[in-house]
Nucleic acid binder design. Sequence first.
DNA 1: TATCGGCTGCTAAACGTTTAGGATGGTGCA
DNA 2: TGCACCATCCTAAACGTTTAGCAGCCGATA
Lengths: 359, 359
Amino acid sequence: MRRKLTLKDVSRESGLSTFTVSRALAGAEGVSKESREAVLRVAEEMGYVPNLAAQKLRGVASSTIAVITAGTSNAYYLDMMNGIQAVAQDMDQTVVLTDIAIGGVYDIGRERQTIQRLLEGRVGGVISTLTLLPESVKRLEDWEIPIVFVDSSPPEELPYVPSVTTDNYNASLLVGAHLQSHAFQDWLLLVYPPIWSSRKERERGLRDAAAKAGATIEVVEAGNNAASASKALRDCLGRRGGRLPDILIAGNNPILLGAFQVARERNTIIPDNMAMVCFDDFPFAPYLDPPVTVLNERSEEIGRLSAHMLTEIMSAQIEARKAGKPAAPIYTNEHQLQVPVDLVVRRSCGCPDPTRSRS
Amino acid sequence: MRRKLTLKDVSRESGLSTFTVSRALAGAEGVSKESREAVLRVAEEMGYVPNLAAQKLRGVASSTIAVITAGTSNAYYLDMMNGIQAVAQDMDQTVVLTDIAIGGVYDIGRERQTIQRLLEGRVGGVISTLTLLPESVKRLEDWEIPIVFVDSSPPEELPYVPSVTTDNYNASLLVGAHLQSHAFQDWLLLVYPPIWSSRKERERGLRDAAAKAGATIEVVEAGNNAASASKALRDCLGRRGGRLPDILIAGNNPILLGAFQVARERNTIIPDNMAMVCFDDFPFAPYLDPPVTVLNERSEEIGRLSAHMLTEIMSAQIEARKAGKPAAPIYTNEHQLQVPVDLVVRRSCGCPDPTRSRS
DNA sequence: TATCGGCTGCTAAACGTTTAGGATGGTGCA
DNA sequence: TGCACCATCCTAAACGTTTAGCAGCCGATA
């Protein structure tokens, strides 16, 4: 391997001081055009690659943002990540991906450990896809590292912390109204645990909607994955003596999958024997049997918005630091974003499919 | 913010030298039990957090591995990432995720830039989901950074570079044989570009299989996403005067989606008017209309295997470095892994669905 | 000519770790 | 007692950058 080159090597080779080389490479001022060009040429020729660790140590602002997830195999994360990546690229930020689940289930020890890791790495900012412990958020605050929650809310004790969420309450009201129009009386919500805080709003909205519709609603909690969902549903139907609800509302995608599994086992015909709707649209939803009615959460947009918000906070912070100001991240109430949701009606709720004439 | 604490602070507070503190925190020897405990206690009390940048600068082995993707919204990446994450966690490695696509399509400039970034960050190892430029791989070699390709092969010029792939050629033979049993004569392969090198083996296998079956096969290339796939298919059917093939083979998931879109537009009934099979299983495949026959690539396993392989190479490297040996990564022929694939027969190929009696 | 200001570029210190090389004191042994 | 040896711990020098502080030079001005 050719020896690793340092600034000093470029300095020696170009006959200019490390100061000049550093400024030239950084594109900063205080260097004449000729010197700059000379430096760039020499650096290029020698194959010099700067050392980020040294820069960081010296106090250059961190350019990595961490995304915290908890291991669900939910397709909508893909879109969200795409959104985040897209703006991270534009902003010249590196994305580190962390998973605070062990074997697919959230683990509190893993959360602590992960936060510790991120502090050690002095990340520039954090995006979390689920509500974290207050303790975790406070540690980040201590270190002046901004965080934004995406598709989840901050811990209740710290309501001022930024978040980008879908308007889950109104979304639920929206489904609720639609279910009312079908005159369903017996609703069943099959849903993931409340660490993913969207759960709470979704449940609340549906309960209110059910009350308004004069319907009953049963809420069944499962783990955030298909296997757990199908088990929970099987148990629930067992308790009900096999009586199907009029409508099954799946809290998200993996849970819908679990429900489909159970439906197939029992040869349940959807929507004739039991209708279904689901939170979060996904690419294959229109092609399922039957096509499923869905609340379309704009996950890519949410991802983009959150990354955008985060990088803005980070930039403001860097400006402040330059000006010698205190550099804690500044959160305003513009940092609480809600994006609306639309109901995409397909056949699983009992409506005729608008996009296809059934053979 | 409470002032940032350094080793020196812990040293002062505990009355022990930085040497001792460092060794104690690292769990290394040369420190008495009492000193160690004292150090740990004080560090804990003060809320000391080590600075990774400083460690790295000093030459501590990097503990981050980078995953390179090119922005496709393909659900199977999720599982692969889960596999990678799982072993990364075990090995105490941080995962950084990079996307060398711009707006969803591969970009060569972005590839170069990304490699540069990774070098600057002195990552410990790289996993790539697509074939990179020889130039990129060579740069990593220069810097003694190991790389393993997953679900893709190394550039042809560098065949010794590790990879974990599915046995795509035999997989294609497998589908081919099944298609032959259906006596399909007119095959159409709709497929993504060859940067994702699995494309080549898949195509080769199918061509061989078609020849053997005495069938004709047309290969249509699309971009690696649904929109592009449906456009390509529409164009192709146009060229064919609307004549459908007996069987459409979708190169992967997003492409299958594109095909479904076209089928719906034209009211094509699958498998009656045209049969379909697809590479890569996905959770909802059994519940589509019709359930789709699929080659089940074990993406989670592939992810795990690749991460495992990479971390092993990295460990060997660290050992070597400790022993004062040259520390270039060592690649053997055990680092070329192929995992088998199974054919999951459902209804879209024209078979009766084994798991469901059609109403 | 003397003075001044504006560029440009230098030297050297600092960032927070790890570790080579050495000092210290205690123990075992002859 | 004197000596060798060991475990423990210390001092100080790196690692590769950035940047405060200063110095030299040039041309403009009085």
